[in-house]
Simulated scan of single mutants.
Amino acid sequence: MDKWSALKMFVVTAQLGSFSRAAEQLGKTPSALTKAVNHLEAELGSRLFERSTRRIVLTEVGRLYLETARQVLQRLEEVGEEVEQLQHGLRGNLKVTAPLAYGQAFLDQVCDGFLEQYPQINLQVDLCDEFVNLLESGYDLALREGHDDLPGLIARVVGSNRLALCASPVYLARKGRPVNPQTLEEHEWLLYRHPLLSREFWWVERDGQRLSLPQPQAPRLRSDNYDLLLANALAGRGLLHTPLWSAAPYLADGRLVQVMADYEIDPDSFGPHILAVYPSHRRATAKVQAFIDYVGGFLARHGLD
């Protein structure tokens, strides 16, 4: 029996927990899947499933074998893609996940340019702020803020995650007060709510001196959606901590002004970098590398490397 087909039938059966449902998904008969699993079990000399009239359950050997079988099938698929790309150029599907705020800030432009440069690649880009487990989700790549010492993952730095404290000229004129560590409590704030961020303090550094500044306890607007806060900052509603990759075009055209610019703001748990991340057990294919290089090049051209 074809080993590749047998492995695929075993993996789908294990995922669905049923020979009949797996057979329906694969367009096979249940007996064909049973035969494939029996073949693998005979080869191993050990059972992969405990079977009953109601259900099948992976054995300890089966759980171990499933993890390896998934990796083998994934790698075979990747090698097939790489061979095809060597022969015919970059093509196929690329599945990417990234934070919501990356979309409007730069990822929409990245996708446009990338699709123009690689007309035979189809992109799926899913934007969400929830943590996505790359080892289980099926994504080829994630763009993230953070640190590059992630277990089970390979992370390449593609940009900077420096923060700035910004406000619109309209707000600053209306408030009529300078912005410095002594006057922060006199100002109106737009506060990003996120479980990784401290609710008590934010940190800055100037001339080698590190300062802890209190978070505003009664902001004019608090939200877990950064784009909503940015829109209100542009409308003149208050001060906002914003990544430079987001604020750059508004600083350039004068719709935002950076205040306390001589202070370096600590990005806290978000980390100092924008990262392109993929599972360490999967070698990045040519199309993944091409996307990573394109993102890094785009951010560098806009001074955000």
Rank of each mutant, 00 (worst) to 15 (best):
L163V: 12
K287H: 13
V83F: 13
H88E: 15
G92C: 04
C128K: 06
A98P: 01
R193I: 08
A105H: 06
L240Y: 08
H302V: 08
Y102K: 02
A42K: 13
E185R: 12
I292C: 09
D207L: 10
L127H: 05
L256Q: 01
A284L: 05
Q109H: 11
L7H: 15
M9H: 14
H302D: 08
A101D: 12
L211F: 12
S5Q: 10
E84K: 14
V79N: 02
Y278D: 00
Q217P: 03
L197C: 01
L191E: 11
Q289G: 03
D293R: 09
A105Q: 03
G103Y: 00
V170N: 02
L196G: 14
V83K: 10
L184V: 09
D149A: 13
E130F: 09
R255L: 02
L135P: 00
S280K: 05
V257R: 05
L141P: 00
H147V: 08
I121T: 09
L16Y: 09
G303P: 11
C111D: 08
D224C: 02
S280A: 13
L197S: 02
Q74G: 15
D112P: 01
Q289W: 03
D268Q: 15
L230C: 08
A42D: 15
E200D: 14
K175M: 04
R174E: 06
S31V: 06
Y102V: 10
E264G: 01
L165S: 12
E60V: 05
V204A: 14
N122P: 00
M1I: 11
R70G: 00
G254K: 07
R222H: 00
A235Q: 13
A164E: 07
H281T: 06
I292A: 04
N232Q: 13
E82S: 07
E77H: 14
R55Y: 09
E24W: 13
T59Q: 09
R51A: 05
V72E: 12
L76F: 06
N232L: 05
H241I: 08
W203K: 10
N122S: 15
D148E: 13
V277L: 04
A261N: 06
R75M: 07
P243A: 10
D227W: 01
R220V: 11
L184Q: 07
D224A: 05
V259E: 06
S52T: 15
R193L: 08
G17T: 08
V61Y: 03
H194D: 14
F298A: 02
P279Y: 05
G45T: 05
A290Y: 11
W203D: 09
F201Q: 14
L16F: 09
V61A: 04
Q182W: 05
F106D: 03
K28A: 07
L196K: 09
R237G: 03
L163E: 06
Q104R: 12
E136V: 14
S46V: 13
V110D: 00
E188S: 13
G89C: 06
A164M: 01
I154K: 08
N232M: 08
L239K: 08
T13K: 04
E205V: 13
A173K: 09
Q182P: 01
Q15A: 11
V295S: 02
F201A: 03
E81D: 15
H302N: 11
V295Y: 02
R220Y: 00
G271F: 04
T34I: 07
V83I: 15
L165R: 11
P195Q: 11
R51D: 01
Y65R: 03
G113C: 11
A32P: 03
V110W: 00
G80L: 04
H39M: 12
P272T: 12
E185T: 14
T29W: 01
G103Q: 06
L7Q: 14
